[in-house]
Design a protein around this nucleic acid. Structure first.
Length: 909
RNA sequence: GGGCGGUUAGCUCAGCGGUAGAGCACUACGUUGACAUCGUAGGGGUCACUGGUUCGAUCCCAGUACCGCCCACCA
């Protein structure tokens, strides 16, 4: 017996356990050995993470696909796992140490700190796995992987070594995005450009050989800068070669204020005459553009900052222009060193101002790079880092998408992918962190680098190189988290071992993810997959939207507009949340989530629950020997056809990744066809006493309900599985789980005659109800009805469905004959439905109603006439469109005639 | 600066070269033998604007306005 109410909290956990107990999620099940595999790798959530709405959407869509294909008989592998998320995780544990007043990271030391993180990971690292289970995710959990598992770490080392050997990984000294708070390099992608109100300082640099006079512009050159503190590291002033204002100065030298260093005025096209003063200071060690200018002109790169963004001036020849520092300079260095960058800015501006070297300060809006994790202003910083030659590796990855070996859905994301890949920069992969894959590179005493998969191999290589054993020191840095994520589609399958899984499940079928990680992740997987597996990692990339709040804003903790999916699951059930996300996941549009939408779909689950209760109460039990194609009753033939059409629509939509259309189709079928009409139409049969009709109808009601449960299962797995089992007469689970049952693929159940007849029936009932309501006939009142002018077909139909019509339209007697005087009249095809309600209704109102109908239909006739009178329309529009209009015209005209007659009858009273 | 997307009912969104749709909200009625987490009926839209293509445009094309996102850019 089903409970009276739908209460998802009561069974979702049990249903999930039943699936797990049956090992229903496992790939390579015995019954699917010869089946085609279907593979999805999960975008691994951070171990630190807990389920947010983005995960909920992402995993719901994957689960829908996976359940759909599993029911279609494929051998499904949905490969789960989590990501070690280098910076994020390290920060979480550091924060925890701080909160607990425990020794910090540095005090602990690397080894103990890493141990601590592992400990944390064991304790609370898998909360998100439990949360994904609550969502209903049918991953093969027995294959759960973590990016820092030994196997995956081995893959990382092998990839590093091989790419290094191929010259695709190299070490280089160049500017990186340096996070002075986290004290690590980060990649371009981890930098967020934030528009900031700042200032533009115009500085006067005195020209050598002239006596500086603030009143005489000929004695100095003005440079504009947003970062005056970096002027200590200037090594040139650049002007545009064509800028006539400055031509006479090119080749001259200026004396860098405060420092006194002599630096050249150079001509370089980088300088933009429109910007600032047209002359720009060049600080190669602290600006990406200046770095390039510096390289072109072989300028010294003078670093004036420390790793934590304090002034750090070295009185070396580079800094002092080769001369011994003066006592004043020494004093200045002492004064400035250790001053934080923004404080230094003020000190320097003040000093320049006092010396008459500050021309003006303008307010200035510009974008400033910030670290996406720390929020700190990023410092371009000159360091040694490891890089991947992304430009080379991108080439096959671009080609693969161009040739359609991997396809994006929706297609337009391909241009985003191409644009980025074609302009890709060297990828900085080293991070000055402790948590992650330590770079497999060792250094000899003379700095020689030995890249090898382990220490022993490095040692051997060193021995061969030096001719004897030398002490080696391992690179302390770790790899960018995305380096290991890039291997995910094959490292999770056991690569570099030649496992059966690699052979069977790679390449994967589809990757489901948000557009925000196209660059971070998709691009890297493409590069790595093509290089190491010589095959794309996935055939299709389905890009879904971002989930926003109901006002369309991105959810964020700071805005406080975060909707917690787990709370929605608690309140409405996982199925309601899943269905909402699927129904709103139209391609190319963000998902704006509102709570009452979820509530609406919870109500849908309730509806289904109650329909199942109805089936239960009426002994509508599936019968193994029942063949829906043999149904005799029109209503049963009709519903079978509708079920078949719906299956086709859902299937087609899912194949095209149109989740919202698939969801819409099954929703409409269950609620508005099966419940609203079919169940109402069969009540008289079920209450009646024709045993054969009853048996057929029960079997059909059960068959179609099962069919609907299957179609709905990918979207609402819990309630469908529960109903599948519980509504059986024994109240016991069948040996077969719904999730492992077969997807409906019937054909030949449609029947045009049945469709027409039930269509007529529905129109009949709807029209009568509508007119009753309009005429204020009390809802409870039963009225007589006479059908005038009925054809034989109509008479037959009315006779067969006599009880149904009476029940649904609230009619007490249903006869054929002439329209009685004083009737409310409805034109239905060739017939007129008359309800003799003289005395009950207002004749005037009825006459008004008929006139409105006549007006409406008149304007439609006019519209059609205008079209048909248009010679161009008749000659140029496709034949079937013209024919359609002609047919429509004759139908509508016939109706108009009948309406006129009806009105005349009424007025004749 | 480069690119992408959006503008359809009060709200959130589908859709489409030929009668404009859903959910929620709203109004009226309703304890009809699954369901008030419901049923029946109803109101509500110049499909942002301007041109063009077409027999016909909400839909295709161009432009405009507004909104949003991505990439680039510390003068």
């Amino acid at each position: 017996m089903l409970d009276k109410n739908y209460q998802p909290q009561k069974f979702e956990g049990d249903v999930y356990r039943a699936w797990e107990d049956a090992r229903a999620f496992a790939a390579g099940r015995g019954d699917r050995e010869s089946a085609r595999p279907f593979t999805i790798v999960i975008p691994p959530p951070n171990v630190t993470g807990s389920l947010h709405m983005g995960h909920a959407l992402n995993n719901t869509l994957q689960d829908i696909l996976v359940r759909f294909e599993r029911m279609r008989g494929r051998d499904v592998l949905w490969q789960p796992g989590t990501d070690h998320a280098g910076i994020a995780t390290q920060m979480v544990v550091e924060r925890q140490l701080m909160e607990r007043d425990e020794p910090n990271r540095r005090e602990l030391g690397r080894e103990k700190f890493i141990k601590r993180i592992w400990q944390w990971k064991e304790e609370s690292g898998n909360t998100i796995v439990g949360q994904l289970k609550r969502l209903g995710a049918s991953c093969d959990w027995s294959r759960l992987r973590f990016t820092m598992d030994e196997g995956l770490s081995r893959a990382v080392r092998k990839v590093f070594v091989e790419l290094h050997r191929a010259g695709l990984i190299y070490k280089d000294k160049r500017l990186v995005n340096w996070d002075p708070e986290l004290l690590t390099a980060i990649s371009d992608l981890e930098v967020e450009q934030i528009e900031t109100k700042g200032h533009l300082w115009h500085l006067r640099y005195p020209i050598e050989g002239m006596t500086f006079d603030p009143e005489d512009p000929a004695t100095f050159i003005v440079v504009a800068t947003t970062r005056p503190e970096t002027m200590l590291g200037d090594s040139a002033v650049a002007v545009h070669p064509d800028d006539e204002r400055y031509t006479h100065l090119v080749g001259k030298t200026v004396i860098l204020p405060i420092v006194g260093r002599r630096i050249p005025i150079i001509a370089d096209e980088y300088s933009d005459p429109e910007k600032g003063s047209g002359a720009v200071k060049i600080t190669p060690a602290h600006d990406f553009n200046d770095f390039e200018v510096g390289r072109r002109h072989a300028l010294p790169m003078i670093n004036v900052l420390s790793k934590d963004a304090r002034l750090s001036l070295q009185p070396n020849p580079e800094f002092t222009d080769g001369v011994d520092p003066s006592p004043q300079l020494k004093a200045m260095i002492l004064e400035y060193n250790g001053v934080f960058r923004f404080a230094a800015r003020k000190m320097i501006v003040d000093r320049l101002e006092s010396e008459g070297l500050l021309e003006k300060i303008e307010p200035h809006v510009h974008v400033v790079p910030h670290g996406d994790r720390s929020g700190a202003v990023i410092e371009p910083f000159l360091t040694d880092q490891w890089y991947v030659d992304a430009a080379t590796m991108a080439k096959p990855a671009i080609e693969a998408v161009r040739r359609g070996r991997t396809t994006f859905v929706p297609r337009n994301w391909e241009s985003t992918y191409f644009h980025w890949m074609e302009n890709i920069q060297p990828w900085c992969i080293s991070r000055q962190l402790w948590w992650g894959h330590q770079i497999p590179a060792w250094y000899g005493p003379d700095g020689e680098i030995f890249v090898a998969e382990d220490g022993a191999a490095a040692k051997a290589a060193a021995k061969e190189h030096y001719g004897k054993d030398e002490p080696l020191k391992r690179d302390e840095d770790v790899l960018d988290t995305w380096f290991s994520s890039g291997l995910w589609p094959f490292s999770t399958l056991g690569w570099p071992d030649k496992t059966p899984e690699v052979a069977r499940y790679y390449p994967t079928d589809v990757l489901v993810t948000g557009f925000d990680i196209i660059f971070f992740w998709i691009a890297r997987m493409m590069m790595m997959g093509l290089h190491f597996m010589e095959e794309v990692p996935f055939r299709t990339v389905y890009i879904h939207a971002l989930v926003r709040d109901e006002k369309g804003q991105k959810m964020s903790k700071s805005k406080g507009n975060v909707i917690d999916p787990l709370e929605l699951i608690d309140t409405y059930g996982a199925d309601a949340l899943r269905f909402t996300l699927a129904a709103m996941a139209a391609q190319g549009r963000d998902v704006k989530l509102s709570g009452n939408r979820v509530e609406g779909y919870r109500n849908f689950a309730t509806k289904l629950w109650n329909a199942s209760r109805f089936a239960e109460m009426n002994d509508c039990v599936p019968r193994a020997d029942f063949d829906p194609a043999t149904a005799r009753l029109t209503v049963n033939r009709w519903i079978a056809g509708e079920a078949e059409r719906t299956a086709a629509a859902v299937t087609e939509a899912l194949e095209a990744y149109r989740f919202n259309e698939a969801a819409g189709a099954i929703y409409h079928f269950i609620w508005h066809i099966y419940c609203d009409w079919f169940l109402e139409l069969i009540k008289p049969v079920l209450m009646g006493d024709d045993a054969a009709d009853k048996a057929e109808t029960r079997a059909m009601a059960a068959f179609v309900l099962d069919h609907a449960l299957k179609l709905l299962h990918p979207f609402m797995p819990f309630v469908t599985e529960e109903l599948w089992a519980k509504r059986m007469p024994q109240g016991e689970r069948r040996d077969c789980l719904l999730m492992l049952s077969e997807w409906p693929t019937h054909a030949g159940l449609q029947n045009a005659q049945a469709d027409a007849e039930i269509g007529w029936l529905i129109k009949f009932v709807t029209e009568v109800r509508s007119v009753r309501a309009e005429m204020n006939v009390p809802a409870g009142a039963k009225v007589p009805l006479v059908i005038a002018g009925a054809s034989d077909q109509t008479k037959a139909r009315a006779a067969v469905h006599d009880e149904t019509l009476k029940r649904l339209a609230r009619i007490d007697t249903l006869d054929f004959g002439q329209t009685p005087p004083g009737s409310v009249q409805i034109v239905l095809d060739e017939a007129t439905l008359a309800m003799p309600l003289a005395g009950v209704i207002d004749i005037g109102a009825e006459s008004e109603r008929l006139k409105r109908e006549i007006d409406k239909i008149g304007s439609e006739i006019a519209q059609i006439d205008a079209k048909l009178a248009n010679e161009k329309f008749v000659s140029r529009a496709p034949e079937h469109v013209v024919e359609e209009q002609r047919e429509r015209k004759s139908e509508v005209e016939a109706t108009a005639v009948k309406l006129d007659q009806a009105l005349k009858r009424l007025e004749a009273l």
